[in-house]
Nucleic acid binder design. Structure first.
Lengths: 187, 187
DNA sequence: CAATAGTGTGTACAGACGTACACAGTAGGG
DNA sequence: CCCTACTGTGTACGTCTGTACACACTATTG
């Protein structure tokens, strides 16, 4: 139709494979993630992976790039909803405490990406972009110095909460106090 | 000599293997860490690994347990050197900015441990203990609430610095300001 | 309809992997 | 001295992995 180039039967297949890859990574970890596990999860034949991707490494790289993009959008949209600094602080507290950003699944994937990024340049690039975007999202509400500090707090604190995994509720006031302390002093 | 039990030729071999395992993990990542790579690095025969450990998983678990202990000691000793709150704040800034705690090698290993901990109970336990100890080290100088916040800041900020990997110097004043802001408000 | 060019798949293969285990080596007891 | 009990090693085996590739299929072109 129009173009001289043919169109595949299932143009979304590549994305489905990448989504399946993230699921497998989340359940098993990058170690023990295999072509066959991904293929089975995506319900596609094994050969389909080698047809669409140049090896397992390429799948992981693109899967993590996709993850970074998704997380960036989520992070950004939560902060873009804030209209003033007070709401921005609340948004930051939400990012740390709320179940939206800090879903266990995304945390597991995040750690897989970070560890993989230390041994793979493409993944490292994805991590850097994700970090840059998350800080830029803060930049709409805070000066650069505060962005650095708040971004670090979001990362570190939400990750500690992820591993402690008990009593997730009563922290909120404390987190809020720390966030406003930094925002006030560095703002 | 006293006991009825014989003594092996090389009692330090187990530790040497664990040290070699950490080196391999640091260079290659947990994915692509194999018995053979560890054996070669430790300069011991392949069979020695299956003799001393019940499988690769056991090696990783014990290697990470060792890592957590080492890091805890380092973290604790740096903070124990502080005599008052001001020095404690300086120590926290050092932990974030200084090259001692934040050596790239240890960071890589830390991320490997975190990601592995999401799929392995023993490693998860090691991570939790390491986090508990690091917070306890802060507890000698700050109230519990401040410990939570400062510990999160150390983790998040040092890790961001690890990935950004450019201009590591001029941050120091900013980090110091953020640390004292939190310490003052929550102290 | 025949020719064709690109899409997609099942299978086969070489290599690497974890692990078991038969065996060698050695230090004490009798 | 021999015997025994234990430590430690080299090798072999079955499995699983990544990847290539010959082949089938389909839709377009002439």
């Amino acid at each position: 139709m129009g173009g001289s180039r043919r169109v595949g039967n299932d143009p979304r297949r590549k994305d489905r494979i990448l989504a399946a890859a993230l699921e497998v990574i989340g359940e098993r970890g990058v170690h023990r993630t295999t072509h066959r596990a991904i293929a089975q999860r995506a319900a596609v034949p094994l050969g389909s992976l080698t047809y669409h991707f140049d090896g397992l490494q390429a799948i992981l790289e693109q899967a993590f790039a996709h993850l970074a993009r998704t997380m960036s959008e989520h992070y950004g949209s939560r902060l873009a909803a804030a209209r003033d600094r007070e709401q921005a602080c609340e948004a930051v507290v939400d990012l740390i405490c709320g179940p939206e950003y800090a879903t266990p699944r995304q945390f597991v994937l995040l750690f897989e990406m970070y560890s993989y990024a230390n041994h793979n340049d493409a993944a490292r690039k994805a991590v850097r972009e994700w970090m840059a975007v998350s800080r830029n999202s803060l930049a709409a509400h805070f000066p650069p110095e505060a962005c650095r500090a708040l971004d670090a707090m979001v990362e570190g604190w939400s990750m500690h909460r992820h591993f402690e995994r008990d009593g997730g509720g009563p922290d909120r006031d404390l987190v809020s106090a720390a966030v406003t302390a930094v925002a006030d002093r560095l703002g």
